[in-house]
Amino acid sequence: MIWILDISLLLFLVICAIAAITIKDLLSAVVILSAYSLIMAIVWVEMQAVDVAFTEAAVGAGVTTVLFIAALARTDGRSED
């Protein structure tokens, strides 16, 4: 039963990763990257690495998103390529 959860989490992970690098609006990319970090934290818990999951949730989904948004506020928020 648990492998269904694993497969769906990894599927969401891949979808989030591809969406984050293809989307043009950088604010959306940051939010998708935050969702990627949250799913990654659940995957770490699933792999019994609670400490890493804690760090991933605090740094990846929390502070890094804030820092990215603060940096985006200084730009026009669109990707050129």
Partner: peptide
């Protein structure tokens, strides 16, 4: 709590510091 509890469970100085910093941020 995360900083003090870090020795005997998940957590530690880095995670607790990040969470405390996130509060002030």
């Amino acid at each position: 709590y995360v900083i003090i509890h870090g020795a005997s469970g998940p957590g530690g100085g880095f995670q607790g510091g990040v969470i405390f910093g996130a509060a002030i941020i």
